[in-house]
Amino acid sequence: MVPGVNIVLLGMTGTGKSASANAILGRDRFPSRASSMPVTTEVQRAETEVKGICMQVIDTPDMFDEDMQPSLRAKLVEDCKRVCGSGSCVYLLVMHVSRFTDGERDILTKMERAFGRHVSERTVVLFTRGEDLRRAGLSLDDFLRSSHPGLQKIVQKCGNRCVLFEKSRSNQSQVEELLETVSGMMKRERVSTNSEEGKMGWWPGLITRLIDLIGGEPWPADAGNFTPRSSQMEKPCGLAL
């Protein structure tokens, strides 16, 4: 089996981190329910395997809550890093399509403080409650074009990488879209990876395995520029398939 990747779900309370993690896993592993209080209070993890790729899915509490004690926030960040270990991390910033709060305006800054200044380069924005857009007759692109400038800035800083989850759709198809977006992000990193083969070890193999998984073209060893196959990497944002 190809060594895997850590998928870390981050975001504010009530955005659907645990439900999204369960969708990725294909089973109800993390508690998820409507509540006025946080349901997730500690860093949790579970593993799944997709066509030979081991993915560790890491669910987290709202560690960016401004009312949280700094010592508790520091502990949660360290717990998350410890669970990830030395493996590669992909961050999913989970956001609710029907709201954009003051606390989310500077969430990337908070993430950079916690996980380093390059965290946005490894981040995909995962929007939940896609059924709200469907009822309104809006696509994800429509939604983003009319959304708050602060939200648009977050998406842009994350390389316009975003996916939409909704309850009425197959979890499998949504996870495939997410993996395609992640693989596109990994392809873009391959150029720098080629110059660091010794340090990265299995990383190129994981990229190749993900590309095979979603049916993309092999990444040439001498590649210098990459033109994404998926149109979602070229537009402001959109679904991956």
Rank of each mutant, 00 (worst) to 15 (best):
E104W: 08
I107P: 04
P38H: 13
W202D: 14
G130V: 00
L76Y: 13
G116K: 11
S231Q: 15
M12Y: 06
P228T: 12
E197D: 08
Q174R: 13
P31I: 07
K110T: 08
M63G: 06
R113G: 14
R122H: 13
L10I: 13
T181M: 10
R135E: 11
F143H: 03
E66I: 08
L178W: 08
P228E: 10
P38Q: 06
L239G: 05
M200T: 07
T123H: 02
D141A: 11
P38R: 07
Q232N: 14
V175G: 06
P218F: 09
R129S: 07
L241E: 05
S98V: 09
V57A: 08
F115E: 01
Q174N: 10
K153T: 11
K110L: 15
E131P: 00
R27I: 11
I24K: 07
R122P: 02
L25C: 11
E189A: 14
T48L: 09
R45Y: 10
L92E: 00
G11F: 01
L213D: 03
A221H: 07
V97W: 06
S195G: 07
N6T: 02
G205N: 12
D79L: 05
R134I: 07
D28P: 00
V124T: 11
S146H: 00
R105Y: 04
R29I: 12
P70T: 03
R134K: 13
L213W: 09
L72W: 04
S71E: 15
V50C: 03
C162F: 05
D65R: 04
F165S: 04
R73A: 11
L76R: 00
V5Y: 01
P70E: 08
E177S: 06
A19S: 14
